[in-house]
Design a protein around this nucleic acid. Structure first.
Lengths: 143, 143
DNA sequence: GTTTATGCAAATTCTTTGCAATACT
DNA sequence: AGTATTGCAAAGAATTTGCATAAAC
């Protein structure tokens, strides 16, 4: 994906472009999995924590990205898959390995919908599975 | 539910009984919704934060309770519904109101299961819906 | 020139641990 | 006595904010 496309995506969400915001967004796109603030910092030595944080907050508000809590103790951010900013759901489910603390995206698996009681307004859904990833499961059995 | 029943539930999970642990567990049962460490502290002026925390940690390990991340920035703890300590899933879905920061349990709604790729070992599942609760939705529309 | 974004530093909040004192068996 | 639990205080980790500088419009 070219930078221009990415710029357009951000603008499509109503996010005013800056060099830093673009960088953060690109990094999320590139990673292709949810990243924590810390991980983003590590990948962008030129960017300041608070700058990244404010970029993330802004993009969250504009629903260009979403946040998931995986139990690692820190939020992880992920670029939205679709450009449809009317549907801001986490589109797919995630898996968090309690042993190696990695978070996996199961992109093939959409989140099954449920009925909610009258009056509740839904803006997003997180479906988070936890346990052991194949690597850790194997090691755990051998041990 | 009598104290004795609650004691039995804890012991059934292999948690050695102490006054503090019982108190914490009772408080969770009583609340009937997920509580944060802070909320528990507020409800138990006699108990120390670290004591509550260690009680929670222990009960988590023994799967007498489970933890959910609702996006409020702090973990919330909830007494398990069933006494079956082989199934430690969050049995029902939760709703977090982004406006008033309350977390609701939709006990009627079980978490729909999904297929996960080969090799992943599942220990728990969180299904978290976010948005506006009826109260906040109404106020938001009027505003 | 006014508004907006950035960088730095520090405050806040939440979680977790070390250690001495206490309670339990 | 010996082990396990509790309370206090403080360390760690992550998030969030104030403010001065720098950039954008």
């Amino acid at each position: 994906m070219h930078t221009n496309e990415i710029e357009q995506q951000l603008e499509h969400h109503g996010v005013k472009l800056t060099a830093m915001r673009l960088l953060v967004y690109q990094e999320l796109k590139k990673a292709n999995r949810p990243l924590s603030l810390r991980e983003l910092e590590d990948r962008m030595p030129t960017a300041e924590r608070s700058t990244i944080f404010r970029a993330l907050t802004l993009m969250l508000e504009h629903r260009a990205i979403h946040a998931i809590e995986d139990g690692s103790g820190s939020l992880r951010y992920e670029a939205c898959e679709s450009d449809d900013h009317n549907h801001h759901d986490d589109q797919h489910i995630h898996f968090y390995c309690e042993n190696c603390h990695r978070t996996f995206c199961f992109r093939e698996t959409r989140i099954p919908r449920v009925d909610t009681p009258e009056g509740f307004l839904i803006s997003s859904i997180n479906y988070m599975v936890k346990g052991f990833c194949p690597d850790c499961a194997r090691r755990h059995c051998l041990a």
